[in-house]
Design a protein around this nucleic acid. Structure first.
Length: 870
RNA sequence: GCGGGUGUGGCGGAAUGGUAGACGCGACGGACUCAAAAUCCGUUUCUGGUGACAGAGUGUCGGUUCGAGUCCGACCACCCGCACCA
């Protein structure tokens, strides 16, 4: 009998239409079943979907379809993170309006996503650049302003003096503007901030209430928030050394126990003391100007060479007024953190030690490592940061660092400097408030007005939305909103006088900080429908890239707290379960300097070596490293091409198999073909077996081949369910392979006249179809049809597992001698330790190894292993 | 620089502290075919041996344990994030 090959090109559109016609994935809040909200991070509409998207949405779709089969009321929406810089770059380069560019991209990408056969509720779709969406975001902003969660302050930006524009950190390359090549400067602007620090403590401690988040993400967030308990410590400045009017400097320190090891104070270049000192010291002024040429990113600042400028100022040691330490201005001290001033203890901090060596400052150890001789111990080029005993420290000698911390704190809290305590305890956070101002066009306008008589006033709620103007000009440098001839002109809602609009737009992270809440009631007039939001949230399973581990997730966690304060929902955390997927990576190829795309490359294996040649010219190519797919290195594979030639199911199956989803997956052509072969193999197995099962309606048999088939099927379903719950799709797929191998072998021997066997086979195929359905939904529908099942596979319930088929009567234990496997022993599953011991000692290998002696030790782990120690 | 992660056959990977290499890819051998593709069967960690088998083996070095890929310490390499990329 010949079987036609499965043709995804006809089957996939057919089933996609069947699902859409049945409105299978349009979710009703009131529908029956336990609610389950699955969400993948929504895409930026860059133009076309890439393999990373395919992987992300395939992962989420498996969960969505599985939970639906398990009887849950599943919400699985999709939208677009549509504001941002690339649209403006496209506008500048191609003279296309950002809105047109964005919406055209969305149309393309929606079509591509639909070809994947995702079980999405498209009726809830929106883009963050839709006026309907950013209108509600402006409402949220006003509410937050009202609650004191939004405010203005000065902050630094990267300024390109040629393009007259603010640059993003990624647009600063080696300290120069990416377009103009001009030396970037730091500039201070008054900008809008959200008060995320109000929630710093809760954002850190509530991480403990998120057991379904990866431990690493919780750790990263905890470190990012960076709670530290320390001392605000005031140092008097030595008379005659300080600028006029300055008499003290406050440092924040977590190590007051090392105070007797202090050898310098360092302040940030924009610390008031540094600014004041620079007024009378041109060399210092030049040094500070020099530090402003570093970009504003922490990375740029911290990887820059550590430099300091020794001012004339000296500080008086808080515990010894005869002791003076020099005050430096240093490029690695950040004004945003603590007080913008630190004291350096070189012996017990590596950065301080490097600084001290560079500027020849004293290095005095005050913490003695255990078992070290106090006279001989010294610090050379490695600071000692571990625990020990305090010495060289007067009244602190002999204490532990913790005790010394307490002693210093108590003493200095009680002592007086200029009429106030010299020190106070302080809990400090590394987390800074969230600067949301962007000097760009393609973002959500901040709904605020500047009135000459009333100052900064919020736009009236009824005047919202503040819409972006359509007629804009990207020809000239700078912010198009700022330059617009009329857009800025407005009326003050307080006094009715002339006012001008705020031209800053919001960081696009704001857009993505609450979209998951909007999905629960996407057309509501208010930002949320609190009832719907409270019913659906938190998101049960959120899936996205690890690159969002800190900012996006932290901002979203902040936002639901802010929204709760404003009454938009009542929720502790936005995402109950979080899964961070790995990237899709691909080999790179280059012809000299030029990168070559995989579609233009032919790989031939010769003598065990892989050789790449360019197809068009037959020239040999260098095979480079395996890297994240990126346009610049051309190592991208277009999902459209894959879906067109192999079908969506093959693409989905491939990205789900092999690699565990939290790790990177290497895209390879061979792997895709393997996946496609499996699609055809499943099709063959079912279409060739089904006609042999004419009388399969009865009960499956309970012995012989029938029992074996049933055991295999039920065990696989149990295992696959378990794997999907844990998002271990690669393991689920391995199990499906195993089952198919087993069934193929078993079906060859089936007696078509044996009703027990044919029924078992039929059941097994039905179960197999349902467990592959979340991963290969189109193929599953076609198989479902061949099997003569009714309805759609996508609407079929998950197969029930008969637990009695999961265990065996006997178990085979590996027998180790001194930890090395030397034999096997099969015993009844219920056998006790004593029984096993007796049987083990009777084994030939064991008695030979013992040579008449008693074993030194006999470790029996029932059901697992036996180890005989001789 | 700081924070986080990863490292296992030719390759992707599997393995509640308990038989290292499931499953897949590739390769090799065989069947089918006039032939090829497709498909099916078998072999495939390395070294030695015809073989039974023996030894080695999870980035490197050390430790804990009857037993370590898994736990602990140090190191190496690579990847992600660092607040205006999304």
């Amino acid at each position: 009998m010949t079987t036609e090959r499965y043709n995804p090109r006809t089957a996939e559109p057919k089933w996609q239409k069947a699902w859409a016609d049945a409105k299978l994935f349009e979710t009703q809040t009131e529908a029956a079943g336990e609610k389950y909200y699955v969400l993948e991070m929504f895409p930026y509409p860059s133009g076309r979907i890439h393999m990373g998207h395919v992987r992300n949405y395939a992962l989420g779709d498996v969960v969505a379809r599985y939970k639906r089969a398990k009887g849950c009321n599943v919400l699985h929406p999709m939208g677009w993170d549509a504001f941002g810089m690339p649209a403006e770059n496209a506008a500048m380069q191609n003279k296309v309006h950002p809105a047109k560019w964005t919406y055209e991209n969305i149309d393309t990408m929606r079509k591509q996503l639909k070809s994947m056969g995702l079980s999405l509720d498209w009726s809830r779709e929106f883009a963050t650049c839709d006026v309907e969406y950013y209108h509600r975001q402006q409402m949220l902003f006003l509410d937050m302003l009202d609650k004191g969660l939004a405010y203005r302050k000065k902050s630094k930006v990267n300024w390109d003096p040629v393009d007259m524009t603010v640059l993003a950190n990624e647009q600063v390359i080696d300290g120069k503007g990416w377009r103009s090549g001009a030396e970037v400067e730091q500039r201070e602007l008054v900008q809008w901030f959200f008060k995320i620090t109000d929630f710093a403590d809760d954002l850190a401690s509530a991480l403990d209430s998120l057991p379904e988040w990866p431990e690493k993400v919780r750790l990263m967030q905890r470190n990012w928030i960076g709670k530290s308990e320390g001392l605000m410590l005031r140092w008097a400045l030595a008379k005659g050394t300080a600028p006029d009017g300055e008499r003290e400097v406050t440092v924040f320190t977590t190590r007051p126990d090392t105070l007797y090891g202090a050898s310098f104070i360092a302040v940030a270049p924009d610390h008031p003391l540094a600014q004041k000192a620079a007024e009378i010291d041109p060399a210092l002024e030049a040094f500070i100007a020099e530090t402003r040429r570093t970009g504003t990113s922490a990375e740029a600042i911290e990887t820059a060479e550590k430099k300091g400028y020794r001012t004339a100022i000296e500080a008086v040691h808080p515990l010894d007024e005869t002791w003076r330490v020099p005050v430096y201005v240093a490029n690695f001290v950040l004004m945003e953190y603590g007080t913008g001033a630190v004291f350096g203890c070189p012996a017990h901090d590596q950065r301080d030690l490097d600084f001290a060596r560079k500027y020849d400052l004293p290095v005095r150890p005050v913490v003695l490592p255990p078992h070290e001789d106090p006279v001989a111990f010294s610090v050379a080029d490695k600071a000692y940061v571990e625990d020990g005993v305090i010495y060289n420290s007067q009244f602190l000698d002999g204490k532990s660092p913790d005790e010394a911390f307490e002693a210093v704190a108590e003493k200095l809290e009680a002592s007086d400097l200029f009429g106030a305590p010299q020190a106070s305890r302080k809990v400090n956070y590394r987390l800074r408030d969230w600067g949301i101002s962007r000097q760009r066009y393609w973002g959500c306008p901040i709904p605020v007005l500047h009135c000459e008589s009333c100052g900064v006033v919020p736009e009236a709620r009824e005047n919202l939305p503040v819409k972006l103007p359509d007629d804009i000009d990207f020809e000239k440098p700078g912010n198009p909103l700022d330059r617009h001839p009329t857009w800025r002109k407005a009326t003050c809602p307080v006094c009715g006088g002339d006012a001008s609009r705020e031209t800053d737009t919001m960081d696009t992270f704001v857009d993505s900080s609450w979209y998951f809440a909007r999905f629960t009631a996407p057309r509501a007039d208010e930002p949320t429908d609190p009832q719907a939001a409270n019913a659906w949230l938190p998101v049960d399973q959120y899936i996205g890239g690890i690159e969002h581990a800190i900012l996006h997730l932290l901002y979203s966690r902040f936002f639901i707290r802010a929204m709760r304060e404003c009454g938009h929902l009542d929720l502790d955390e936005p995402f109950k379960g979080l899964f961070t997927q790995g990237m899709v990576v691909h080999e790179t190829y280059r012809d000299g300097r030029e990168w070559v795309a995989p579609v233009d490359v032919r790989i031939v294996e010769a003598d065990g070596r892989r050789v790449a040649t360019r197809i068009s010219t037959d020239t040999p190519l260098d095979i480079g490293g395996i890297e994240k797919m990126s346009k610049s290195k051309k190592n991208v594979v277009d999902p459209d091409d894959i879906i067109a030639s192999y079908g969506a199911d093959t693409a989905r199956w491939f990205v789900l198999s092999d690699s565990p989803p939290d790790r990177d997956v290497i895209w390879s052509e061979a792997g895709v073909e393997g996946a496609h072969r499996f699609v055809q193999r499943l099709w063959r197995l079912v279409t060739e077996t089904a006609p042999k099962l004419p009388n399969a309606a009865g009960a499956p048999g309970t012995d012989g081949a029938a029992l074996e088939i049933r055991k295999a099927a039920h065990r696989t379903v149990a295992g696959v369910s378990d794997d999907i719950e844990r998002l271990a799709f690669n393991k689920a797929i391995a199990r499906v392979h195993e089952l198919v191998n087993q069934l193929s072998a078993a079906f060859g021997k089936i007696d078509p006249a044996n009703a027990g066997e044919t029924a078992a086979a039929r059941d097994a195929l039905s179960m197999l179809t349902r467990i592959v359905a979340p991963m290969m939904p189109h193929l599953a529908e076609s198989l479902w049809e061949v099997l003569g099942e009714t309805g759609l596979a996508a609407a079929a319930p998950w197969p029930q597992v008969d637990d009695s088929l999961l265990s065996d009567d006997t178990v085979t234990l590996p027998i180790q001698i001194n930890g090395k496997k030397r034999g096997d022993l099969t015993v009844p599953a219920a056998a006790g330790k004593a029984e096993i011991e007796k049987a083990v000692l009777a084994l030939d290998v064991v008695s030979a190894a013992l040579a008449g002696q008693a074993p030194k030790r006999l470790v029996v782990v029932p059901g697992r292993i036996v180890n005989v120690v001789v």
